[in-house]
Amino acid sequence: MKKEIYLAGGCFWGTEKYFESIPGVLSTEVGYANGGTENPTYEEVCYNDTGHAETVKVEYEESKIGLPYLLELYYDAINPVSVNRQGGDIGQQYRTGIYFTNGADEPVIHDSIKKLQEKHREKIAIEVKPLLNYYRAEEYHQNYLDKNPGGYCHIDTDQFEKAKHAADVSRIYPKREQDELKKSLSDLQFTVTQNGNTEPPFQNEFFNEFREGIYVDITTGEPLFLSSDKFESGCGWPSFSKPIDAEKLIDVTDKSYGMVRTEVRSKNSDAHLGHVFKDGPVDKGGLRYCINSASLRFIPKEKMEIEGYGDYLNRL
């Protein structure tokens, strides 16, 4: 399904180029949004205090990229606590804003902003409003950096590279409903991943599995750990020195059973995986990810290509 969102993030030349680089974005257009005049010109927006924000209209394919992930990428390209300024550009037209046309998007946006605020001490300056008005900018502003490759841009080049390779794992490895998980998982797998239980040590599937391969989230198939980072810890559960990507996991303080530990969950599926401790091999970073076998599915090296994990073969 094609959806749209309007994003203000400073000078729209670079902001448009950034969003058009993201897989799943179908089209972009620059314009002036939520101001107090009709059909403004660029000069009027810059010098006549029209109240418009330089804005990018983003059309995207929801089956390939969801709004929460698109907003995360947006936050990466802006300073979210800066008021009326992005990079060297100063003025109300350079404010940050998320403007929606579908009321169903509003709670999604506010939830996203709430999570962003938790990462910042200063107040988030991004305004969230319905799209009140929008006027397409002059033709020479459309795809400006494609027409002028050396033109001004306030976004770092590494952000463009990240945008080109962005992948919304929630679409690639979608989270499944509880009823579906109950049917597809064993009782142990369900209670461990959904209820935070722990399987017995030394009596689980992968504690002594040391073949080459990849370990994926049992609930979604998302890659989490590689055999090259697995080691024998003697604890009775699979132990890894690091995940494939730390951004795929979230840490949660666990005060159960009279202890204070750090629980590890899958960010995408919210499945309980295990715990992480600081008693791992020093030469590998000093961490020990103690993970339940019931949270994982192991795919041996010889089957990785056919199961769609061939891109990880050179990392074993």
Rank of each mutant, 00 (worst) to 15 (best):
L224R: 04
E138D: 01
V25W: 08
V108M: 03
T96F: 00
S256F: 14
S241K: 05
E72H: 12
V108C: 10
K2F: 06
H120L: 12
S239I: 04
R211A: 12
Y47M: 13
G274Y: 08
K115I: 06
E205R: 11
A8I: 01
E38S: 10
E302L: 11
Y47V: 08
E59R: 00
S82C: 05
L116Y: 09
E232A: 15
S186C: 07
T41S: 14
C153E: 01
D217Y: 09
T96P: 00
A271W: 05
T101W: 02
E302D: 15
Y99R: 03
T198D: 14
D49M: 10
I155L: 10
E118W: 05
E263Y: 07
D187A: 15
E138Y: 07
K242F: 09
G151K: 12
E38V: 09
S228C: 09
E122T: 02
N34K: 06
D229V: 00
E16S: 12
F298L: 09
F298S: 13
L185I: 08
I250R: 15
D251F: 14
V260G: 02
P238Q: 11
L67H: 10
T193F: 10
K278T: 14
D89Y: 08
E61M: 10
V169G: 01
K17M: 11
N34C: 04
K119W: 02
A167R: 11
A77Y: 10
D146N: 14
G10P: 04
D245L: 05
E61R: 06
I214P: 03
I5R: 02
E199N: 11
G274A: 09
P243W: 00
G51H: 01
G14K: 06
V81Q: 01
N48S: 15
P281V: 09
Y144K: 05
I98Y: 07
L226D: 02
Y42M: 05
L296R: 03
K3A: 12
S241E: 10
T101R: 03
Q178G: 00
K119Q: 13
N195G: 03
S228L: 01
T15W: 02
F231G: 00
H154I: 01
T101A: 02
A125N: 06
G150V: 04
G103D: 14
A166C: 05
E38P: 05
S112H: 14
E62N: 14
C153Q: 07
Y309G: 07
S27R: 08
Y42N: 10
S63M: 04
V83P: 01
P23C: 09
G285T: 02
S21Q: 06
L70I: 06
I90S: 03
R288E: 08
D168V: 04
P40R: 03
K17S: 15
V216S: 11
M1C: 09
N48E: 14
A125I: 03
P174A: 07
L26M: 08
A104R: 10
V128Q: 02
G24S: 06
E263A: 10
F190R: 08
F210M: 01
S295R: 03
T28I: 00
